[in-house]
Design a protein around this nucleic acid. Structure first.
Lengths: 329, 329
DNA sequence: GTGAAAGCGCTAACAA
DNA sequence: TTGTTAGCGCTTTCAC
């Protein structure tokens, strides 16, 4: 592949002029520009990003930290990030941390190494201390999961309110005994969603029973199956379940089915996330939709703002309750 | 962030020595090494990949082209690629083409621009002509989808044989009227799977009827629903269906259910891909598993070989029929 | 409007 | 063993 020197020689100009043409500098005469453009075409020249990036000390690469690619929850957010990034001449590097600190370190180093210009973290297990330290000298945004009172700007939804809406929907349908399938409460969103659940119950004077709250280890389908199995073994069975993720809810639906029960007649189920499969289950799943795509766009725009040394404000976006068959048979 | 000069100054050595320490060059005395390491620590120095990459004219970044992140089919392949890449000190850039030629162009240019050292393409809609041209001067591997008689090395499975196994399984269960839900036959895998389907039917002397072959536009759940709807309207309904993707099969299952029928009693269903949700449906889905993770590792290893200017051979990996409830109620 | 030259941070050939 | 220096490909300042 030709370099800028060869183009300059072929066009009979200096490398500076070639560079000007490449960067659309208006001070080049049309005639010179033409000569250069011809040389570029003849030599099939493409400017090397390596040289350009070194000179400009930027990589135009954004890191997106997610725990796992296979979690469908992130798909639309990533689409939003990606489209926004490309529109601003950035590319994204999708980084799977597998919740492993070593992996995380590799990516943090890429930022320090100037191989990336900024980070959008969606990993709830991220080492917040290290990330905050990194944020002192680099551009970082939190997306979805964030830190209360932290110094890093974030974009998220109101998890407490969303959970409140989900549970209120179940109450309005006449359910009095409502269980919560929650994930580990070391995660902020889990604590917030539990708060919303409790607030709804209290507001309607419904009992709050510890045995109706099940904590799963992960967010997998099997954890939902297991959770539902335990809830169905109780003497006083719940008539409705709010699961903090669709995968858990789909697992719960499966177990309800296996036990010969029917949703929503015997037990109503609400999930969270509106993943694409939530519309394919039988019955289809009532769930809370986060504005994924918009959240991604917002996160990317915020990050690019920070990179440009502008001030940004954290944002809280709206959610939506999507009512389907699992509560309204 | 400090650069190599400042470290050299602080350690009282030359930049060459610092570089040697960074690259574990054995010719540095322990004493000097210690001085340098101290300086590095004191200044919190991290070498700039930008400088290093320009000098070595490599980016240590591999491009992975997929049509869409949200397709769960790719998750495990990507995991395999990623782990192999990281083990070899490469990182991967996940590139969603959305089957758009412009997007594709952006990524092709990244390779020409030296922003990436190679490409693994899993996009069945990729412009094979352009890719082949790119492959003349750059390192490219095809994964899963490939070109018959093409010049680019690939890793894949035997789609024809896999389809043959799936259909033979249905025949062995006593099914005589077997439908095929295929995707667009502009894709090689679709043509090959159809061949496998036909070979099985012929081998057992079963009728091959055009109205039992339905071509979908996409691979979405809804396309499966639509396909099944059409098949169930036929006068002579099939008793079994082989769908060339799990998402299609899950859509088919849904429609069977909606029509008050039961799988496998009324209609048996086999999918393809063994995506994680295929185990969560009701009934769970019989399907063909491709060795996703291994395929990813193999593709990455092949690519890295090519980058190192070694010869590589295309590979065909084994598949497996996973029998679940949708055929064996 | 265009060219010469410095320099981004690093590595490696060559010299000492 | 260590230092000096050229140069990877590009952009940009300063002259002209």
């Amino acid at each position: 592949m030709a370099n800028i020197q060869e183009v300059a020689k072929k066009a009979g100009v200096s490398v500076a002029t070639v560079s000007r043409v490449l960067n659309n500098n208006p001070s080049v005469t049309p005639k010179t520009r033409l000569k250069v453009e011809n040389a570029i075409r003849d030599l099939d020249y493409e400017p090397s990003m390596l040289g350009r990036n070194l000179r400009n000390s930027e990589s135009r690469l954004l890191l997106v930290l997610i725990p796992s690619i296979s979690n469908p929850f992130y798909s639309d957010i990533i689409n939003g990030i990606q489209n926004t990034a490309i529109a601003n001449n950035y590319n994204i590097l999708l980084c799977e941390t597998n919740s492993s600190p070593e992996r995380e370190n590799i990516y943090f180093n890429m930022v320090k190494n100037k191989l990336a210009d900024g980070v959008i973290s969606m990993d709830p297990t991220v080492n917040m201390e290290k990330l905050t330290e990194l944020a002192e000298n680099h551009s970082i945004i939190l997306c979805s999961e964030y830190e209360e009172g932290g110094s890093i700007p974030y974009v998220t939804i109101n998890h407490e309110l969303a959970a409140y809406h989900a549970v209120k929907h179940l109450i309005k349908l006449g359910n009095q005994k409502i269980a919560l399938i929650n994930s580990d409460e070391k995660f902020l969103y889990a604590r917030q969603r539990r708060n919303g659940y409790e607030r709804a119950l209290k507001e309607f004077g419904l009992p709050l029973r510890e045995e109706w709250i099940y904590h799963t280890h992960q967010l997998d389908f099997q954890d939902g199956v297991q959770a539902m199995r335990m809830l169905l073994r109780l003497d006083e069975k719940p008539t409705a379940v709010f699961a903090v993720s669709d995968t858990l809810a789909i697992g719960a639906l499966k177990e309800i089915n296996v036990c010969g029960l029917k949703a929503p007649d015997d037990i109503a189920v609400v999930g969270f996330d509106n993943i694409s499969f939530s519309n394919m289950t039988n019955p289809t799943l009532t769930t809370i939709a986060q504005p994924m795509y918009k959240m991604g766009c917002t996160a990317a725009n915020m990050l690019i703002s920070i990179i440009r040394r502008n001030k940004v404000e954290s944002m809280v976006l709206d959610h939506e309750l999507i009512i389907r068959e699992s509560t309204m048979g």
